Computed example of a mutant assay.
Amino acid sequence: MLFGDVTLAARIEQAEAQFIAACSEAAAGRRGDRAGFVVPIAGGVASYAEPGSPLNKVAGLGFAGRPEPADLDAIEQAYAARGAPVQIELSSLADPAVLELLAERGYRLVSFENVLGRALGDGVEPVEAPGVEVRPSGDDEFGAWLEVVVEASLHPDTQGVPWLEEFPREVLENAERDAAGLVRRYLAELHGAPAGGGSMRIAGGIAQLTGAGTAPAYRRRGIQSVLLSARLADAAAAGCDVAVITVQPGSKSQQNAQRRGFGLLYTRAVLASGPV
């Protein structure tokens, strides 16, 4: 079982911060303006893409020193100018001084998410399910991939703790488009019909499983297990030593991942200042 220590958490959080920053920059390119921002802060990044976006967050803090109060002042003012709350995702393995500073500034705990991981050095066991085929998805079928992934996100499983936020279709579609050039996409078909999709980003030996979903009509057919297996096999072939996935505590996604050898590495506390 992979052990989540501070060194591993720092690698994962750096990869996450870089991914959020790249997606936010892609959003700026799509919009053709500079209404958003990406600002480095104490080893992490503060990102704002557009109103209501899941990319509007601070990620990666706590592994490169404590932020300066003046830097937090500037970040808070930037979000306030756009009518957005400040949302910080802070690892439980981050420097405790960061949490102390945020508490002093009135940040409150609003949610948790779990970061799961598994080592890839020993290979990946293949998984099959009747009628299910998973394959890399190219640009020629991006529309089909986007439709099934967004449809799955709009109808999440109800097991476990729900996500803090719900996003409308247009916002989810924009976020997936912004990430599209940064990830490997996978389409799952059931008897030839698009039924699910997922994605993966490889950075610094880490395979980030950046999302997966099954359309409601096709659930409980083993699609998620096959999607997970395919991505893990590709990650191992690419030389990654660890795969990570972010899930809600007690969710079906966590259950599926743990069945495939993932274990809890650490938890992120979601902290907020201003209305959420």
Results as ranks from 00 to 15, higher is better:
Y218S: 07
T210S: 09
A203F: 12
Q224A: 15
V226G: 04
I223M: 08
R201T: 08
R219S: 03
A207Q: 05
R221P: 11
R220N: 11
R221H: 15
G211S: 04
R219Q: 07
I206H: 00
R220E: 12
S225N: 14
I223Y: 01
L209R: 03
S229T: 14
A207L: 07
A230I: 14
S225Y: 12
Q208L: 13
Q208K: 13
V226F: 04
L228W: 04
L209F: 03
A203E: 13
G211F: 03
A203G: 10
A212W: 06
A230N: 12
G204L: 11
T210P: 03
I223W: 03
A217D: 09
L209C: 07
L227I: 13
A230Q: 14
A207G: 04
L227Q: 06
Q208M: 15
I223G: 00
A217I: 11
T210W: 00
V226Y: 02
I206F: 04
R231L: 10
Q208A: 13
G222Q: 07
G205P: 04
A230S: 15
P216I: 02
T214I: 11
V226A: 05
R221Q: 14
R201V: 09
P216S: 01
I202F: 06
S229A: 15
Q224V: 15
L228D: 07
R231T: 10
V226Q: 07
A203D: 15
A212E: 08
Q208S: 14
A207I: 08
L209Q: 03
G222W: 05
I206R: 01
G213E: 02
A207S: 04
T210I: 10
I223A: 00
G222A: 14
L227V: 10
A217H: 09
A230Y: 09
G222N: 08
G204C: 07
G213T: 05
G222L: 08
A212N: 08
G204Q: 05
R231H: 11
P216Q: 02
I202C: 06
A230R: 14
L228Y: 09
G211Y: 00
I206W: 02
Y218F: 15
I206T: 06
R221D: 08
Q224P: 11
R219C: 05
I223V: 14
G204K: 06
A212M: 13
T214M: 07
G213P: 02
L209D: 00
G204R: 03
P216M: 05
L228P: 05
S229N: 10
R219T: 09
S229D: 10
G213R: 03
A203Y: 14
R201D: 02
A215T: 07
R219I: 09
Q224C: 12
L209H: 02
R220P: 08
G222C: 12
G222D: 02
Q224D: 12
I202G: 00
A230G: 13
A215W: 04
L228H: 06
